[in-house]
Every structure is written in structure tokens, then in C-alpha cells.
Amino acid sequence: MQAPAGTLYRGREGMWSWVAHRVTGVLIFFFLFAHVLDTALVRVSPDSYNRIMDTYKTPLVNLMEVGLVGAVLFHALNGIRVMLIDFWAKGTRYQKQMTYVVVAVLLLVMVPATYRMTAHTFAALFGSTT
């Protein structure tokens, strides 16, 4: 079905990137809440801070960090796309192409980033102890 003309946010790329922008924004906001609390433990004692940091190094949380980086990177890249739509004269005309650039850059960065972030976890789980 064809979306009516001039509705950037109805259907297809424009709408879905808006949905994803909203979902990632909320996700990051709740993580920030937890993150300020866990960092506050540096004021309690080195030991309690180190213990919370140890949970960040476990395989499951490590995987969630990959998700967090992906969410932040999408939100940042799409945020730039939103600003280009607002301020660049040709922004609305290229909004669809810019969505594909956002997704392409996201994937291009996330592949090596995921490798780097999880290498230690994979080595600890499956690798030899070197």
C-alpha cells in the first residue's frame, strides 16, 4: 500500500526508524538510571564497586552490553538523520536513503565491535587458558 504523499512518519522506513528511535531512547534512559546507581558504589567502598563491575564481566551481561552499544549507536546515527531532515534542505527527500546509510553504518561498526567486546568472554568460555 502506498502511503499518502508528504507523510514522513507513516509506514515504511520513516515510521520504523521513528519506532526504533523511541524504543532505543527509552532503553538507554533506563540503563542510564541503573548505571548512575552502580557507579555511585565507588562512594561506598572499592569492594562493593568491584563486585558490581564483576557482574558486568559475566557472559550474559557482556552480551547485553553488545545490545546496549547497538542501541546507542542506532539512536545516535538516526538522531543525526533526524537533524538532517530538520535542517538540511534536501533532508526529507533523502530520508529513506539516509535510513539505509544508518543501518549500513550500524552493521559495519557492530561486527568488529561485537568481536572485540565478546572476545574475552568466548576465550573464557571455550578457549584454552593462555
Binding site: 565507588v42 564497586y49 558486568y56 546507542v72 565491535a113 572485540r116 567486546m117
Partner: peptide
């Protein structure tokens, strides 16, 4: 934020090296 995430999670050992020190 992207700088923060790169330093904390990607560079130089990533999250494994973070502690009180």
C-alpha cells in the same frame, strides 16, 4: 557517549579492566 562507550568497552581490554583503581 560514543567516546565513553569506545573507551570503556572497546579499547584496551574493554570492560574486563574496569575496577575501582
Amino acid at each position: 557517549v560514543l567516546g565513553h562507550l569506545s573507551i570503556m568497552l572497546l579499547l584496551d581490554g574493554g570492560v574486563q579492566r574496569i575496577n575501582f583503581g
